[in-house]
Design a protein around this nucleic acid. Structure first.
Lengths: 208, 208
DNA sequence: ATTTTGTTTGTCCATTTGGTAAAAATTGCT
DNA sequence: AGCAATTTTTACCAAATGGACAAACAAAAT
């Protein structure tokens, strides 16, 4: 049996380095042009290597995309995982919103990568959405529902509250072009202003 | 001088019909696969005509895309235009949110088309964004700011309030795949639930 | 009816793109 | 050093795609 990059657990230093380099470059390219809008050549040259060389590590374009999405899903959902059922409702949600907004600011490429994938109907990670993602959301929605029941949070539809938080925070990464255009040339304070605004909106909107 | 479909004002019945047919088909295809992911062949066959025939009406793929975006921007911004400075703040915003959500429900393809364009950095309508769109938003932001000044609305950053409304409502069109996955197979009431949730969130969040 | 104008089709082409195969170069190990 | 495994390059291919062109066809105008 031949030992292949994809199948073998034992990976060389060069393999590790190059796979990392490829994924980083692919994130840059995919997040900017979408899956179909990106070419292997673009990714390869962004990674400073030849196309066949890149294909030595990932045999298909789709493999790179999948690897990226899988690797990112965990990081992306970390803030929601951190929502503590034993904490105080308002501060917990407040912290969640703040964390999500920070991620939109610090990892806009990741956000856009996901946005692109979902926009196209989630052809590559549909299973992840209706599986692990749904489970996590359902679990946290229950937590929120119990907070509502206990009167520690204004009545609201938990799932849709989570959607609202996703939408408002990721908006600043996914629709950055629009935000910049509307706010005028450079809008250096846009994330700070957004933080203030979202905090006020949700805290007032959710206070019992 | 030859009279061309693109340059002449005088258009025949067949021109009008076919251009309409092409734009409708293109909306279907572009909104599903994005600009680069869509082929002229797909659009042509969706319109039930041959590729060269389609290219007779729109000489370049990009022309179709541009025509679509231009035609849609007006419709898309109509709800914001309808925000009445002389109306009552809360009901005005309430109606705006409701209208925007209805548009996400009734015109998801249009929403996704825009989302795709903005995600890629708005290469085709950047000018529209920083021109007419910015002006409209600035104008309405002033209205909101004056409401805040008069104490008829909770303090908030007007531009970001508008962003929040865009984000939360369009989320149900743009991220439909995710919403469906998370809510489970068929989620027939998702728009009704969303309407209720967003209404509560924003009305509580914005009440003075 | 004939000419002019508008519409449609068939054919073709250059480029781009995802991917392959095998040779050449490099690295790691003993 | 010398050998095997890994990595990189060169050359190549088939399919897909955007678009050009002229001939054939239909509709209007005269």
């Amino acid at each position: 049996m031949k030992s292949r990059a994809a199948t073998t657990k034992r990976r060389t230093r060069i393999q590790r380095e190059n796979e990392e380099l490829i994924l980083e470059s692919a994130l840059e390219v995919f997040s900017k042009h979408g899956f179909r809008g990106s070419t292997i050549d673009q990714i390869a040259s962004a990674a400073g290597m030849s196309k066949p060389n890149l294909l030595y590590y990932f045999r298909r374009k789709e493999d790179i995309h999948r690897a990226l999405l899988n690797r990112l899903l965990d990081t992306w959902l970390a803030p929601l995982r951190a929502l503590d059922p034993k904490g105080d409702p308002l501060p917990e949600i407040q912290a969640y919103i703040a964390r999500k907004l920070e991620m939109a600011r610090d990892y806009p490429r990741e956000s856009r990568l996901f946005a692109n994938e979902i926009l196209q109907g989630a052809p590559h990670i549909g299973d992840e959405l209706s599986g692990p993602l749904k489970e996590l959301v359902d679990e946290k929605a229950k937590v929120i529902a119990s907070w509502v029941d206990e009167g520690r949070l204004a009545p609201c539809h938990p799932h849709h509250l989570i959607f609202s938080i996703w939408a408002t925070t990721q908006h600043y990464a996914d629709f950055d072009a629009q935000v910049r255009s509307v706010l005028g040339r450079a809008a250096p304070a846009r994330f700070a202003d957004a933080a203030e605004h979202l905090d006020a909106l949700f805290m007032r909107g959710l206070a019992p």
